[in-house]
Simulated assay, not measured.
Amino acid sequence: MKKTIRAFAPATVANVSCGFDILGFAIDELGDQVEVSLSETPGLKVVKIEGDGGRLPYEAEKNTCTVAIQAMLDHLGFTKGMEISLYKGLPLGSGMGSSAASAAAALVAANALLGYPFDKKQLVNFAIEAERIACGAAHADNVAPSLLGGFVLIRDYEPLDVIKLPVPKGLYCTLLHPHLELNTSDSRSVLRTQISLKDSTIQSGNIAGLIAGLFQEDYNLISRSLKDVIAEPTRALLIPGFYELREAIQTIGALGSGISGSGPTIFTLSPSQAIAKEVGSAGKEVFKKIGLDVDVYISEVNDRGAYVI
């Protein structure tokens, strides 16, 4: 019998408002599963994909699972074969780290199959190669929290420097996923290529304030810092209902909201589960009025990350 390992990796919220390409956190329950088996035939082969509606590629050089595993195997000098089955639990183009979850689950399964030659932080280096294939940029703000769990800061990329941050107790996230698809490449194309010194200063202060708020478990500081003056002003124009939702939750007690990754999913952080549920109800009403179906997910921040099932 073939030795087989199956792993799960969670959905993620990247950017977290002010932390464009450098901050992200993981979500509970939502995610992808990947099964990896050793094979007598050299090379990597995708043998099954479920839950994607037939849209994801089986070619090893195009699939995020195999691209990530191949990067790891090249580093090890491993030449034997593997077969990969992907079970999608995340919608494509949702802004919830769909490609990252696939890559993270694949790496955790393959790493376990080979006897754990790498820890999960080391696996981030291989996972970002899959992101390069998926969206044209080797960013780690989805793959790092999907692998490690919790809040993660990407301090630098050359070399990659990943720092796991504390998660305040009782912090909840509401994700509202309107039924429309927004490709990361399209969302990145509307970004400004230059920003003013003023905006850079404001954004730096908000990033520092958000990280300080996480360490101090200061919800008021977190709330004041959840502001993005660089990416959100242009990306929000691509997401119907974004500003209407923000207005609707002002009096509920949520800490703040923003675009999850490149969108169209919108995230809101709340200091309790009850407030997070109120946000979800308000969001349903907003999207109902503009004629869009919406999925609502309520979750604590997942501090575990990807794991072998």
Rank of each mutant, 00 (worst) to 15 (best):
R246K: 09
Y87D: 12
K120L: 00
T41E: 15
T4V: 12
A138Y: 01
Y116T: 13
G53L: 15
K88L: 09
T12P: 09
D218K: 07
K227H: 09
A109S: 09
S225G: 00
G81H: 05
L73V: 12
Y87T: 08
D218M: 09
T66R: 05
Q203I: 04
G24V: 12
Q250C: 07
P57S: 13
F25Q: 00
N63G: 08
I290N: 03
V167K: 10
C18G: 04
T41D: 14
L255M: 06
K80A: 13
E158A: 11
S102P: 04
G19S: 15
A248I: 08
N111V: 00
G280R: 02
L182Q: 07
R224K: 14
E83C: 03
G256C: 11
G253V: 03
Y297S: 08
F242H: 03
G258W: 01
R132W: 12
L160E: 02
Y307Q: 05
K198L: 13
D161H: 08
R155S: 15
E40K: 13
I211C: 02
V229P: 07
Q216I: 05
L180V: 12
T268P: 07
F267Y: 15
A137T: 14
C18I: 00
S270K: 01
G170Q: 12
V16E: 10
G209A: 10
V124A: 02
P264N: 02
S185E: 15
N142C: 10
D156M: 12
I239N: 05
P166N: 05
I275S: 11
L237A: 14
A11D: 07
L182P: 10
H75P: 09
D32A: 02
E244D: 13
N302A: 06
S102M: 04
G81P: 09
G136V: 03
I275T: 08
L221E: 06
N183F: 12
L197A: 14
F215L: 01
A100E: 03
A254S: 14
A105P: 07
G261R: 02
T201F: 05
A103F: 00
Q33S: 15
A138Q: 03
L165S: 11
N63E: 09
P166D: 00
I84G: 00
R304G: 11
V286Y: 01
G149H: 09
L175W: 08
D21W: 11
N220E: 15
S272T: 10
K48T: 11
T184V: 09
S39H: 03
H179C: 08
K80L: 03
S270Y: 04
I309S: 12
T268E: 08
H139N: 14
A138D: 01
I154V: 15
P42C: 04
